[in-house]
């Protein structure tokens, strides 16, 4: 992310944990830009509050337009599955209370590999560039 300066010669993995508060009030494209800028800098981006379905749909679309051979292969994204109690009821959606409080992990496809995933655990292997 913008302020996070990391020395060019280090080969560590940078993780950006973005709070719900920081995302709040941003437009869909601002959120997507923030995510993809981070991922394209080879960072792992973790969102405290996830994206709405519509934002996810646009994230896939914008990701596709940015893929280019030998440079950017796209993203790996994981979220906890929404609970079966399903808060995205029609009423909830009509009231604009879409359930987006799902931790979301996004990283460069060529650097992050999901090892295991279930309702309560995401285990991922992150390799250095």
């Amino acid at each position: 992310m913008a302020e996070a300066k990391h020395p060019e010669d280090e080969d560590g993995v940078q993780i950006d944990l973005i709070s719900a508060e920081r995302m709040d009030g941003k437009t869909t494209m601002e959120k997507i830009r923030m995510i993809l800028d981070g991922v394209r800098d080879n960072n792992i981006v973790i969102l405290e509050a996830g994206l709405t379905p519509d934002e996810e749909s646009r994230l896939i679309e914008v990701t596709m337009t940015e893929i280019s051979p030998d440079e950017f292969n796209g993203i790996e994204i994981e979220t906890y599955p929404k609970s079966q109690a399903d808060d995205s009821s029609l009423l909830g959606r009509l009231m604009g209370k879409e359930e987006t409080k799902k931790l979301t992990v996004i990283g460069p496809a060529n650097q992050i590999e999901t090892l295991h995933k279930d309702e309560t655990l995401i285990s991922a292997l992150v390799s250095r560039k």
């Binding site: 709405t52 379905p53 519509d54 996810e56 749909s57 896939i60 995205s88 879409e98 995933k117």
Partner: peptide
Amino acid sequence: FTQVNTMLIGIIESQD
């Protein structure tokens, strides 16, 4: 049980 399937089904559901 992949993220793409979960996301797409979620997108479809959100549009009713």
